[in-house]
Design a binder for these strands. Structure first.
Lengths: 225, 225
DNA sequence: TGGGTATTCAATAGATAACTTGATAGCTTG
DNA sequence: CAAGCTATCAAGTTATCTATTGAATACCCA
């Protein structure tokens, strides 16, 4: 077994994908791409990195097979390469949150006080009975790239002046990018200060897309069926 | 959004776990630990690394929350820290195999010619009807640490001289560490050369343990239910 | 065809990581 | 308590990674 060159090549090849997850900048880019495909420039702006640096990190992600690249006129649009790649990123994120106290701590510090949540099952029931209204508080472009069926788009920074659009007497459920995104937290606080009843959906669009609404608790990895 | 320190800290913390997957040596250690807990020395020997180097890599894995550490007299025994961590490693492995041609290529080169396979569902049926016998061809210590219910242990290097133990007239199903392990391939070839009917189970012990037998095809990530 | 923009390439300096070697600490046994 | 073993630490060398800068390329549009 000592230094079998073929086996060694196998692990080396897998490590290429592992390296993709070794930089916080790349993780942030991946997290942005999990919401919607974007161009290099959009990603550079959203992540606060230089264009060149963003491009280089995207190439690492591309070499690892995590993202696809497509020319669009003068721009190049990157996207997560598939549901399996998306699920892998979410798994890494969730396992690290479960296993690393530092991630939990950083998440709490970033999100602020917890707000009341609702699960996918209960949400579907309340929506079907007309008791609740579902609001996507992400930026409009991300809503356009994909959203939960039946949701209406009110980006967080427009929420305050568009409160009237929300029917009174119905509870408002807000969702955003996922459990580590602050938008829905802030939306719920804004809504409550406006005297509305509001909760946060405990999954984001990527988790929903992968099927969180079809089953109960989140599960990981191969063969959970 | 530009350089939010709290958000940046979050990705930095997650990247700590990402870094764990960035080295082929660590991946090999993780792969070994996926079969059974082991001491530093055992891991060093199995991976062909120096003791000190192995220890350092294990510390990185430990800092990432992927493995646990327990003193056992004069030794220290490491183990994968839980089913979620195990599933994450298997997902990384499988997604990289699906997305990176180089991984596929290296796997084929390592495993040699394909042999006929059988799935968990069909296996359970044949076992229940007494038509097949299931053999675990991994080293005995890995069998002792956990194995598929009803399997008998015949390590690959003992298979040839223990052929008589296998009842004639029944198909032999061999399994080992997983889809990237060569043991079961070699076992099937050995058995066929001895005139026995044999197939390879298309999952290994870790996949089975995580529930591959309970459902059909492998699925990835959160919320597949 | 030429100007403008988006992306990538190339080169560099600074930071991090990998592996080796030799020393240290913890446990077991005589 | 001393000897012997296992694991970890510390220091040093080499290799790799990151981010920056400035140049080059690809595309669009006039």
């Amino acid at each position: 077994m000592r230094s079998d060159p073929a086996k060694s090549a196998l692990f080396q090849a897998i490590a290429l994908m592992g390296k993709a997850f070794a930089s916080p900048v790349r993780l942030e880019l991946l997290d942005l791409l999990a919401q919607a495909p974007r161009t290099v420039d959009e990603l550079a702006q959203a992540s606060g990195q230089s264009s060149a640096n963003t491009s280089q990190h995207l190439q690492v992600l591309h070499a690892a097979g995590m993202v696809t690249r497509a020319r669009e006129g003068t721009s190049v649009r990157y996207a997560v390469s598939g549901d399996d790649a998306l699920a892998l990123w979410l798994s890494l994120r969730d396992v690290s949150a479960a296993r690393l106290a530092e991630v939990e701590r950083a998440a709490r510090a970033y999100l602020g006080d917890q707000v009341e949540t609702i699960g996918p099952q209960e949400l579907l029931g309340r929506l079907a009975r007309g008791e609740a209204v579902l609001v996507d508080v992400r930026p409009a472009t991300e809503f356009a790239a994909g959203h939960i069926d039946g949701a209406r788009s009110i980006p967080l920074d427009e929420l305050e002046r568009r409160l009237a659009e929300l029917p009174a007497g119905r509870e408002v459920i807000a969702y955003c990018r996922g459990p580590f995104c602050a938008y829905a937290h802030r939306a719920v606080r804004t809504l409550e200060q406006a005297g509305r009843q509001a909760r946060r959906l405990n999954v984001g669009w990527p988790e929903w897309k992968l099927g969180a609404h079809a089953a109960g608790p989140l599960t990981f990895g191969p063969g959970t069926g």
